[in-house]
Amino acid sequence: MMHAPSRTAKIAGIAALAGLMMAVAIVAATHHRAPTAPPAAIVRDEAGPSRLARELERCASLTMPDSGCEAAWAENRRRFFRQGEPEGAGR
């Protein structure tokens, strides 16, 4: 027949758990993280945004369907997925 753990065993278990938690907290507080690289800057052309970029910016503010916007989004998707280019182009 098993007996319940004694009061001393319970105190020892809780002390061990508290010590482990304290050790983890100290390691986390003193751990030096490597500095992260700053995000890459977006460089725009000197001449300003392209026609497609201007059209997409305009379309982003519209709430009604627009055929010009649909064409601009289709062109953007085509350029993004490089559809219609020869296999070696752009690489």
Rank of each mutant, 00 (worst) to 15 (best):
P65N: 01
A89Y: 13
A89V: 14
A15S: 14
V27L: 12
G68F: 02
E46I: 15
G88Q: 13
V43S: 06
K10D: 02
G68K: 02
L56H: 03
R58F: 11
V43Q: 04
A15I: 13
I14G: 08
R78Q: 13
H32L: 14
S50N: 03
R44N: 03
E87Y: 12
I14W: 12
V27S: 09
G88C: 04
F80V: 10
L56I: 13
C69L: 06
P38K: 12
V27E: 04
E70S: 12
A71Y: 05
R78S: 14
W73T: 01
A71T: 13
G88I: 08
A15F: 03
E85Y: 15
E57S: 14
S61W: 12
R78L: 12
P35Q: 08
E85A: 07
E85Q: 13
V24L: 14
A71Q: 14
P35N: 08
K10N: 08
A71H: 09
A74R: 10
I42H: 08
T36P: 00
S61V: 06
M1D: 13
D66N: 12
R44D: 04
P49Q: 14
M1R: 07
P39E: 14
G84C: 12
I26C: 09
M64G: 01
S67Y: 00
A34N: 07
H32A: 14
L20A: 15
S61A: 14
M21N: 14
A28E: 13
P86Y: 05
E70L: 06
T30S: 05
S61N: 05
A18E: 10
A41W: 02
M21G: 15
A16P: 12
S67G: 00
E85F: 12
A4Y: 07
E57K: 10
G88V: 10
T8Y: 01
H32S: 07
R54Q: 13
A29P: 00
I11M: 15
W73K: 04
G19D: 04
A74M: 04
S6L: 04
A74S: 07
H32D: 11
P86W: 11
I26D: 02
G90R: 09
A53I: 06
S50M: 05
R54N: 15
P86G: 11
P86H: 09
D66P: 03
A34G: 04
R82M: 01
L17P: 00
E46T: 05
P38I: 05
A47C: 05
E55V: 06
R79S: 08
M21F: 14
P5F: 10
I14P: 02
R79W: 00
H32Y: 01
T36Y: 11
L56P: 03
N76A: 15
L52N: 09
I42N: 02
A34M: 06
H3W: 02
G13L: 05
L62H: 09
A9V: 06
R44K: 07
I42G: 06
A9S: 15
A25F: 12
T8S: 04
A60E: 08
A28Q: 07
F81S: 08
G84I: 06
A15V: 15
C59I: 00
I42V: 15
G84Y: 04
E87T: 07
A37N: 12
G68W: 04
G19P: 00
P39L: 13
T8H: 09
H31Q: 05
A41D: 00
M21S: 15
K10C: 08
A47Y: 11
P65F: 07
A4N: 03
